[in-house]
Design a protein around this nucleic acid. Structure first.
Lengths: 162, 162
DNA sequence: CCATTCAGGACTGATAAGGTCCTCTATACC
DNA sequence: GGTATAGAGGACCTTATCAGTCCTGAATGG
């Protein structure tokens, strides 16, 4: 499946949200709080807090403690490649245990006919993810308002009705 | 981490092995059996069987039942991109639930500012993985013999003594 | 007819992710 | 100075998914 974790998905949403201070409303000014972002994105507040803390550790967002504190972007959206977000949340991109840098070795590596060959694959993916920034993903956010009203109040996971 | 499953890793090893009939020895001729490949790769036999069955369902390998049966490649290694292997084992490449084609919807999608924006990211990765074939990964198999003797007899899961 | 080998599924244990909560510290406002 | 707010940093549990094994059945060759 080659799926990335939900947390990373959330992180992208949260970061894009942080990059739209004007859309935040009066409750959130230059910095935005976890509850504020949670309300805006629909992601549960504890999860938002967890994501933001991780992103702060990764140096993608800055934090301000105390009353009227919150989070803010340290870089503009177009300076944050997806690869950085993934690395901050999920750790360095390593498709398999064999990829160099991921410490743990492979038990069958002495027999493995593809030893070390995942590295270029990994590099190719990293390259692809490094070329796409959050700004690229934000683009789609503009016409978002045109889609929301089209949401029918039916079906649990209905998405195709547009 | 963006990690792919071990089964996919195994699949690559097994497929590369299937692409080297000359290296299989007398016990395995045109077709190779699960136990044979298991012995050659060091992967447990039931797991090899599982991988091969999955690959057969995916149309990457052909199977021959009955005595003296086994598996064989349906395409040469250089005609099998990594993306196909991943798709056969792990299903279609879908980074997030939001990527089209992955059925299940996202609960917060109506608020999500990056709706549908994972698609290009996904496409970029699929593109990168589609450009690398098993033959590319096999290349490294040639100098393998030069690396094996360098293995120190320390580690716990050492199995190279053959 | 029997041995071999794949097909297909069920089952179980281990591992990791997802999510929640608690306590502590820092800051702003009264 | 006191209090409310808000992040820091963990601990924790719950759940889902994967990895691995095994069993039964069907096809094929000798």
């Amino acid at each position: 499946m080659l799926r990335l974790s939900k947390l990373t998905d959330y992180a992208v949403v949260v970061l894009v949200r942080l990059g739209q201070p004007d859309a935040a409303g009066d409750a959130c000014r230059d910095v935005q709080t976890s509850p504020c972002i949670a309300a805006a994105t629909g992601i549960p507040e504890p999860t938002v807090a967890k994501v933001l803390k991780t992103l702060a550790s990764g140096g993608l967002v800055g934090s301000q403690r105390g009353a009227r504190g919150g989070y803010r972007l340290l870089r503009p959206l177009d300076a944050i490649p997806i690869a950085d977000v993934i690395a901050a949340i999920d750790g360095p991109i390593a498709l398999t245990a064999c990829v160099e840098g991921s410490g743990n070795g492979c038990s069958t590596e002495s027999l493995c006919p593809v030893r070390g060959r995942w590295d270029p694959v990994n590099a190719a993916i990293q390259d692809a993810l490094g070329a796409i920034t959050l700004a690229d993903m934000q683009e789609a956010a503009i016409p978002r308002a045109f889609r929301i009203p089209a949401l029918p109040p039916s079906g649990p996971a209905l998405r195709a009705a547009e």
